[in-house]
Design a protein around this nucleic acid. Structure first.
Lengths: 337, 337
DNA sequence: ATCGGAAATGTTAGCGCTCACACTCGATCC
DNA sequence: GGATCGAGTGTGAGCGCTAACATTTCCGAT
């Protein structure tokens, strides 16, 4: 079959057709200055005529750098990571980079290290790691320096470049909002405490409570799932004094809403609820959910910018960007009965 | 682990250390037969000692094929595509392939073609396109043959290899289930009709109605969003004769549920609802949603297998795999009042 | 005219790997 | 005992590109 299917044209083919040397073609391709306009046009025409497509592997081989960015995320269909990934790819494509994903089943040291290794094999130009737990950061510690790295939602204490959402501020806003509506105090269903996101949301919630002089109720631990929110809700629904709950994410809030509904605790009449994430469906929960919206697009854009800066100049000092979330008010909050 | 390597070691460095030629190192790396066990061990030791990592770009350059597969999907924050992507990456990593994503904002010809082009630039070994609308298939039509291609949820009429979920069967199952509960007929809120998924779900719904001799109510058009389901619900809630609704996906169903709740139409007492997708939250809707579950893992695995077969032997004839979805019964269906 | 130097273009040498082939050497065969 | 084989290994070429340097062309200043 390869008999008539000639191999795809190479730079020399273009050069021959345009009547120049392959180096001139290379210069046109890379937007080098010293090329006469007329020559440039001729080369462009030859490229178009042949349908020439530069071979990235060859370029990567000689430059030692690919136009590939690796992104490591936990293998999950969680809304946050998925949004981040999509936003990232979009932004990277605009900058001429391709994105290679390496999802990991778990966020332990081995999984992360393995995914990073696989990307290093690909000679990625830079690496983005969504590292919301300590073990992920740890795995990165032993990594060969030299490849630009940005972590998302990682430990702010670490020295490398990172982008985080200001979880604490978001949690404070949510808690204050509930307090401002007249609630004596606010309960919190947390995410898994080894997640930085979860830890900071707890911290923000506590801070807002202290600052208002409100009692700090016992923390209700959960994971990120709707199921765990439901379980938590089945407990909280039995306590008449619970009139305001801040859930660590929208899915938990959904479970919570259902538990309350089953126990005839009306939201927001009897209990007010605030979530976190602003998933697209949150506006259609019963009732529509007041929640905290982190801007995933902003996170992705900031992360990419930071990474590209490092790729362009590896000597760029570590940097840190914090994205402020905003509160989206809907119908799940009301004054206590 | 020392780190002072000026540049990362190449094959010749390993060869020198092991006292063999670079070609022997290559053979060890590629599991070629004719290497003495003792030599193999020596080479392996040298590789480990140097922390040698083969340069994929160089390999890709000479073989003309990368160990990269590209995947093109729309807005991967939707549950379906996100699940697919994650499952795919997992399966691909096990097969030694990396996955490069190209999400596109819209599914029009240009966007798809652009994403495909970008992947071709990377010299991907194969391409997976989630192409649920006609324009996506069209864009693929003009593609240079020669690169293995699998489409997901594409047009079954096309000649290339594809994997689809049996949307029609899922829709029939949902509709029959509602009919079996005693409803006179079943209304349907559809997805955008240019999506094959949506079209086949409509088809399955109609077929089940005909086959039961039930009246076919007017089709309610919507997009995939919860908002559109809500809008549809505000209409349906006003018609007392509507006792059973099959929504084209779970998000629509969520919007529907809320609209019914606002109009004091109780689900399932007054109206029964069935969705499609089985998003993880569906079990926590109010009430828990009966829905149709396509197995995204199965789709991803089948897609990858088909693609790898084509990569291994480009002469593999086009193939077609259909994945049967299953009905998940929960609490949103009951006999009519 | 003559020259200098910038602008434009060409030439050469690899990047790190695999492929095709050549070679060595002991075992096997007639 | 030489020819033959095949397992194990080495050699050289070259994939398509960019970097560095070499060369030619052009043009204004002398």
């Amino acid at each position: 079959m390869d008999v008539h299917a000639a191999r795809s044209p190479a730079m020399t083919d273009v050069a021959r057709l345009a009547g120049v040397s392959h180096q001139t073609v290379s210069r046109v391709l890379n937007d080098h200055p010293n090329v006469r306009e007329q020559t440039r046009l001729r080369v462009r025409a030859a490229i178009a005529e042949l349908g020439y497509r530069p071979n990235r592997a060859a370029r990567a081989l000689v430059t030692g750098r690919s136009q590939l960015i690796g992104i490591v995320a936990q293998n999950s269909t969680l809304y946050g990571p998925a949004s981040l990934l999509a936003a990232f790819e979009q932004a990277a494509a605009e900058a001429g980079f391709a994105v290679s994903v390496g999802s990991v089943g778990r966020l332990d040291r081995e999984s992360i290290a393995g995914a990073v290794e696989r990307h290093l094999d690909q000679r990625v130009a830079g690496l983005v790691v969504i590292a919301p737990v300590k073990s992920a950061d740890d795995a990165l510690e032993g990594m060969p320096a030299g490849v630009p790295l940005v972590t998302i939602d990682g430990d702010p204490q670490r020295s490398h470049t990172l982008v985080t959402v200001d979880q604490s501020a978001g949690a404070r806003a949510a808690t204050r909002h509930l307090l401002a509506a007249g609630h004596r105090t606010v309960w919190h269903i947390s995410g898994p405490p080894e997640w930085y996101d979860a830890a900071w949301r707890i911290e923000g919630w506590r801070a807002a409570l202290h600052e208002a002089g409100a009692e700090v109720p016992p923390l209700v631990n959960a994971d990120w799932s709707a199921a765990s929110g439901y379980d938590a809700g089945r407990m909280l629904a039995r306590m008449p004094e619970v009139t305001a709950v801040f859930a660590a994410n929208d899915h938990q809030a959904l479970g919570l809403l259902r538990a309350f509904s089953e126990h005839d605790r009306r939201v927001p009449h009897d209990v007010s609820v605030v979530g976190f994430d602003d998933v697209p469906e949150a506006a259609f929960f019963i009732p529509p959910l007041t929640t905290v919206r982190p801007s995933f697009d902003a996170v992705a854009q900031a992360g990419l910018d930071l990474l590209l800066a490092q790729i362009a100049d590896p000597a760029t000092p570590p940097n840190r960007v914090v994205i402020a979330p905003s509160l989206v008010e809907r119908a799940s909050v009301a004054p206590p009965a």
